[in-house]
């Protein structure tokens, strides 16, 4: 089955991973800008990173028949530095019209601080001025519930936002309902320990239905599994879900969401 991984950090993965993904049916990925594992020292570091995301990475993916798309921002962890964040925000528009750029992301909260919220709001404002879609990271572990509610609050307070152009990512059982009820897209991340297993992801699909739900591996430089979406497909099959229902979640939903971005130019594989 063809599928799309809507959240994976391929700059942290090897070319062998591209080959494996391609063999498993992956035809497109979307890569949000995120934290490198260390704080970048200057705006120039971000410019280089955006260059890598928009030029080199798309070429590396194309060699395996995978469309690479991306989202740009300063991530929530480095957003604690408001001065640097504002420099990055001022530079971002240089890159937003490049091919494959789907919008602004993954912005969000990390420890739910005032500085993180300030930078989140400034990203929202830029996205509204430049008509970009949004991909939003919700915090980890004990901070997730509080951070998700804060994010939903900031989104709802901004009347300019079209909710069907916003993906709130890393939902779990305690955050998925408000995200979907308020009309946003929700992403489920399949992580070995800190987020959702494929089994729990299928539980969520069974409880809420497939509408506006995406699943991703969020593969990165930490413990994660770039082939987690095929694990989800297998679990759906084991439970007897129809191929069409599986395809809706892992292929048609990301296509529907991404197609709202002017930077998305995807040619479906010929059957």
């Amino acid at each position: 089955m063809y599928y799309i991984d809507p959240h994976i950090h391929m700059v942290s993965r090897t070319t062998d991973d591209y080959e494996t993904l391609a063999k498993m049916g992956c035809v497109a990925v979307s890569e949000p800008a995120f934290w490198a594992g260390y704080d970048r020292g200057s705006v120039a570091g971000f410019r280089d990173y955006f260059e890598q995301l928009t030029r080199f990475e798309s070429q590396r993916a194309a060699d395996y028949g995978i469309l690479h798309t991306t989202w740009l921002c300063i991530n929530a962890k480095e957003a604690e530095n408001v001065t640097l964040s504002r420099e990055v925000l001022a530079m971002l528009p240089e890159f937003l019209d490049r091919p494959g750029v789907l919008g602004i992301g993954e912005i969000g909260l990390n420890k739910n601080t005032r500085n993180e919220a300030i930078v989140f709001l400034e990203h929202l404002d830029l996205a509204m001025q430049t008509d970009e879609q949004l991909l939003i990271h919700t915090p980890h572990l004990e901070d997730k519930y509080q951070g998700t509610r804060m994010i939903l609050q900031m989104l709802s307070d901004d009347r300019r936002i079209h909710r069907d152009r916003v993906l709130v990512d890393h939902v779990e059982e305690h955050t998925v309902r408000p995200v979907l009820e308020q009309g946003f897209w929700a992403g489920i991340t399949l992580y070995p320990v800190s987020k959702c297993t494929p089994q729990r992801a299928v539980d969520i699909i069974e409880l809420y239905g497939p509408e506006r739900l995406l699943v991703n591996s969020a593969g990165d430089w930490g413990p994660s599994k770039p082939t987690a979406v095929p694990d989800f497909i297998l679990e759906m099959r084991r439970r007897g879900h129809a191929e069409q229902a599986i395809r809706r979640v892992v292929y048609e939903n990301p296509l529907e969401f991404f197609s709202q971005s002017r930077g998305f130019d995807f040619t479906p594989p010929v059957n």
């Binding site: 739910n112 572990l141 004990e142 901070d143 997730k144 519930y145 509080q146 509610r149 804060m150 609050q153 779990e172 059982e173 305690h174 729990r200 539980d203």
Partner: peptide, 15 residues
Amino acid sequence: RAEQLLMHFSRPYQD
């Protein structure tokens, strides 16, 4: 149960 457990491990939200 999964939702209740996650809420148990969560910091509270105040609006």
